[in-house]
Simulated scan of single mutants.
Amino acid sequence: MKIGELAEKTDCPVQTIRYYEREGLLPEPARTEGNYRLYGDTHLERLSIIRRCRSLDMTLDEIRTLLRFRDAPEENCAEVNILLDSHIGHVAARISELKALEKELKQLRQTCNEVNAAKDCGILNNLATESAAPARSKKTKTGHVHGSHARSAN
């Protein structure tokens, strides 16, 4: 199948498929005489795994590790368990951070409970006078990036 068909079957943009190829997550596809990429069932399965892992918010390095074990089916999977336990810890930490963010936003929202002129808006005035909280979009030691706009390719 050509890249467009693979993209359609996996609901994955063509650019993202090419990105995963460049990152070494997908093997090089065969080429036609006209230099079109030709993908097989192996690519389809592997891309489906990658997409599922991304939906679980796993990093490309985590996915690389999981694929390495997938490619070596006789290996001991202890490292896979450790990886997933670590990822669960990351998710728990993010949930905690998001709850703190929600609390902060609710407190900010309470500073303006009536309609005023923008110059008298408690939220806007509070944002201008309160010291900034530590930056929320920061990379953790596990390579995860925190923050709502930090997500990379699908």
Rank of each mutant, 00 (worst) to 15 (best):
H90C: 02
A7T: 14
A117N: 10
C12Q: 05
D71F: 00
A117M: 12
I88Q: 00
D57G: 04
L25P: 06
A117P: 09
T129S: 12
E74A: 12
L101N: 10
A100N: 02
R52G: 07
V80M: 08
C77S: 04
A153R: 06
A153P: 03
I88N: 03
L101D: 14
S131Q: 15
I17L: 14
E79P: 00
R64S: 05
K119C: 05
L6I: 14
R68S: 08
K99Y: 11
L84T: 01
N125A: 06
E102T: 11
E102F: 10
A93V: 07
I63D: 04
L108T: 11
Y19R: 06
G40V: 00
V91I: 03
K141N: 03
G40I: 05
I88Y: 02
N76D: 11
A118V: 15
E104A: 12
A135M: 14
V80S: 12
I50R: 01
T16I: 14
N116V: 15
A118E: 13
Q107P: 10
R22T: 13
E74K: 08
D120P: 11
T142H: 02
H43K: 13
E130I: 11
C53Q: 05
A100I: 08
D11S: 10
S96N: 01
L108V: 06
A118I: 14
R37N: 11
C12N: 00
P73S: 08
R22W: 05
T111G: 09
L56G: 02
A133K: 02
N113E: 13
L60N: 10
E130P: 02
G4S: 15
S148P: 06
P73C: 04
A100G: 04
T140D: 00
R31E: 06
A100V: 07
K99L: 04
C12Y: 08
P134A: 15
T10M: 11
M58H: 00
V145W: 13
D41E: 15
A133T: 04
F69A: 10
T16C: 07
L60S: 08
D61T: 02
L127W: 13
D61L: 04
V80R: 09
S86P: 07
L26C: 07
R70M: 01
A150Y: 07
L83C: 00
K99Q: 15
G89R: 01
A7L: 13
K106C: 04
V115Q: 14
G4N: 15
Y19N: 07
S48V: 10
K9A: 07
I82H: 00
Y39S: 10
A78R: 14
L105E: 08
Y39F: 11
P27R: 08
C53V: 13
T16Q: 08
L124D: 02
R109V: 12
R18N: 07
R51D: 03
R151A: 08
T10V: 13
P29H: 04
L127H: 12
R64N: 10
L105A: 06
V80N: 12
R54G: 01
A135R: 05
D71M: 02
E23D: 06
A72L: 03
Q15E: 15
T16M: 10
L84V: 01
C12K: 01
A7Q: 11
S48P: 13
L60Y: 07
G122Y: 03
T16V: 15
L25V: 02
C112I: 08
E130K: 06
P27L: 12
E74P: 01
Y39P: 09
H144P: 09
D11P: 04
A30V: 08
T59V: 05
V91D: 03
